[in-house]
Design a protein around this nucleic acid. Structure first.
Lengths: 202, 202
DNA sequence: AATAGGTTTAACCAAATGGTTAACAAATGT
DNA sequence: ACATTTGTTAACCATTTGGTTAAACCTATT
């Protein structure tokens, strides 16, 4: 039997669906069980409680996000390349997992301490290398002076917000689903250009 | 008796607290009643149901946000001034209402149709004037070519994200509460400079 | 002082919810 | 073949939750 067919994995899969679309508080154990096609008691057999099942889903979700961040933080390319690659890759990735950003952001807001549990994991994103690279390129006269943390948050903001704020932005800009998808698609390059325009020393 | 002291208003006030920090699903009617210092039956006496009380809170919250957006969309100043003013004013405002962005964004994600109820209200933000102004300044050679909607989303993203992603960014950048506040404070000008650097025709 | 109106409360209710139990089935090992 | 462990289910349970009710409590008007 393949790993994806085990009951345990089917539960996690169904739980992912329900938790990510309804949040911890809105999710119902019964709905997860129904979606997984099994009895509700099985959820507790494999994951003991709603809280633990939720944490399994959350860690799983975060483990998808972390490598995306690490790619911009830890590789050896120039800042400009990092930004172009990240903007393209992250947007591509999020178009496949559109509910993931809001899930993570919202649950972290609901329970600030929760992120501390993840912090110590190996692979948790670390900014040191990125900061050093930004400062180095500024010294070389390649970039205009900017605080590396501010730049990092700007990059995150421009890439993540269109997914977080989709319902709001869709209505404000009066785009339908198709137009919004095209809008997001074009941001793969637009956002990188926007950032690089701002920081590149000319 | 002042308006703020009426039972109805005390309920709305308590409901705002609870809904904005715990969301629709996590909020408990009993907690709202306790916080308002009244009997739970009063909630239903004045607002009939949890759903209607929630909608009252949500509309109230949105009516605080909308004027912030309208200020950048509808005044007659240059794009550069708009951006500088908005970035400063919005950040100042959000530092006073830090849970508001996540509340609105998250509830809209949880229920996409909900925004349609607000759409028809007078005062609902409209982008037409902003788009025209951006296009005009591009024609005048004042700004580099950029799609007005993309610019608008960039402005929103850079200003709102630090509040949405605070728990994540705090840990990633290893800032404590005080340092994060200073970080946010400095964005009042940093963000405007970042945007204008990118779009201003030199 | 009696009346009538809105306001407030304690007690109650039905439904939903996370979780448990005990019996049963299916593998697994000997 | 038998026993033991693992997986699965239906039925059940205690608690929580949004919501209701009927009576009590003002407060202003007559």
């Amino acid at each position: 039997m393949k790993k994806e067919e085990t009951t345990e994995h089917q539960i996690l899969d169904a739980a992912k669906d329900v938790f990510q679309s309804k949040g911890m508080d809105g999710a119902r154990m019964q709905e997860i069980a129904d979606k997984a096609g099994i009895n509700k008691a099985m959820l507790h057999y494999y994951y003991r409680s709603k809280q633990l099942l939720f944490e399994a889903v959350f860690k799983n979700a975060f483990s998808l996000l972390a490598p995306q961040l690490n790619s911009i933080l830890n590789d050896d390319s120039s800042i400009e390349e990092k930004i172009r690659n990240f903007t393209n890759d992250y947007t591509t990735f999020m178009m496949k997992h559109p509910y993931l950003p809001n899930f993570i952001i919202n649950e972290l807001n609901r329970n600030e301490d929760f992120i501390l549990k993840l912090k110590d994991n190996t692979g948790f994103p670390n900014l040191e290398k990125f900061r050093a690279k930004v400062d180095a390129e500024i010294s070389q006269g390649n970039l205009k002076p900017i605080d590396a943390d501010q730049l990092f948050v700007n990059i995150l903001a421009l890439n993540i917000f269109p997914f977080l704020g989709k319902p709001l932005v869709k209505v404000l800009t009066k785009k339908d689903e198709k137009a919004y998808k095209a809008f997001t698609e074009s941001r793969k390059t637009e956002v990188a250009n926007f950032i690089i325009n701002s920081i590149k020393q000319s």
